[in-house]
Amino acid sequence: MERDMFDTMTMTKVLGGVCGTLLVFLLGGWVAETVYHSGGHGHGDDHVAGYTIEVASAEDAGGDVEEGPAFAEVYAAASAADGEGQWRACSACHALEEGVNGVGPHLYGVVGRDVAAVDGYGYSGNLIAVNDVWTAEELNAFLENPKGYAPGTAMGYNGMRRIEDRANLIAYLDSLDD
């Protein structure tokens, strides 16, 4: 009889501990939501941040923003060998073998190829509307910010920030075909 009471009490304590922990997490989430957001409780347009961080713009700094070197200069010095290392990020969705499509179209011969030229692959209309041919310059602009280059594109990649990395990758892709 004593053993059954001990088991029941133990289970009650465990259940109480789990419920108490859940209550603490829910309460913590509510407090964080209250501290960091003001306004209504919905998640629509009326949801406003509770604080604003002011950032100085280029005009406030009193000078022009220095642009990096032109892509043509960087591309002229690009290394296809270094670009092969950049390819790893692309290989998750693309293949290098002609006619083999993954989530994205194959990239064999992409430099100089018409956009939407891969048979059997359904391109997003937004990408087709932006460009006709994948020149090195167009690939550079697309790889820097795919969603900014072709808003609504199905490509989920966030972009490659360094111009040298983009130039090396494009040089690698261009070296694969004749």
Rank of each mutant, 00 (worst) to 15 (best):
R3Y: 13
D4M: 09
F6R: 15
D7Q: 12
M9L: 13
T10M: 15
T10Y: 11
T10E: 13
M11T: 11
T12E: 11
K13N: 11
V14W: 05
L15H: 03
G16L: 13
L22Q: 00
L22D: 00
V24A: 06
F25N: 00
L27H: 01
L27S: 14
G28N: 04
A32F: 05
A32E: 02
T34Y: 07
T34C: 04
H37E: 03
G40M: 02
G40E: 13
H41A: 06
H41V: 08
G42W: 05
G42D: 15
G42Q: 11
D46L: 10
H47I: 00
H47E: 12
V48W: 05
V48E: 13
A49Q: 08
G50C: 04
T52H: 09
I53Q: 12
A56L: 12
A56N: 04
S57A: 10
A58D: 09
E59A: 15
D60S: 15
D60A: 15
D60F: 06
D60P: 04
D60M: 14
A61S: 09
G62F: 06
D64P: 02
V65F: 04
E66T: 14
F71R: 00
A72S: 15
Y75D: 02
A76H: 04
S79D: 15
A80Q: 09
A81H: 05
G83A: 02
G83M: 05
E84N: 06
G85V: 06
G85F: 09
Q86P: 01
W87R: 08
W87D: 07
W87E: 06
A89N: 05
A89I: 10
C90H: 04
S91V: 07
C93Y: 03
C93D: 08
C93P: 10
H94Q: 11
H94L: 08
H94W: 08
L96E: 13
L96F: 07
L96A: 11
E97P: 00
V100C: 00
N101V: 01
N101L: 03
V103W: 04
G104Y: 02
H106I: 03
L107C: 03
V110Q: 07
V111C: 04
R113K: 14
A116S: 13
D119Y: 01
G120A: 10
G120K: 06
G120Y: 05
Y121E: 01
S124M: 02
S124T: 12
G125I: 03
G125L: 04
A129Y: 01
V130F: 01
V130D: 06
D132K: 12
D132R: 10
V133P: 10
W134K: 08
W134D: 07
W134M: 08
T135W: 09
E137C: 03
E137G: 05
N140V: 02
A141T: 06
L143M: 12
L143H: 00
E144N: 10
N145C: 02
P146S: 12
Y149D: 11
Y149G: 04
P151W: 08
A154H: 06
G156E: 09
Y157R: 10
N158F: 12
N158Q: 14
R161S: 11
I163V: 15
A171Q: 14
D174W: 01
S175M: 07
S175G: 09
L176T: 01
L176V: 07
L176Q: 15
D178S: 12
D178V: 05
D178C: 00
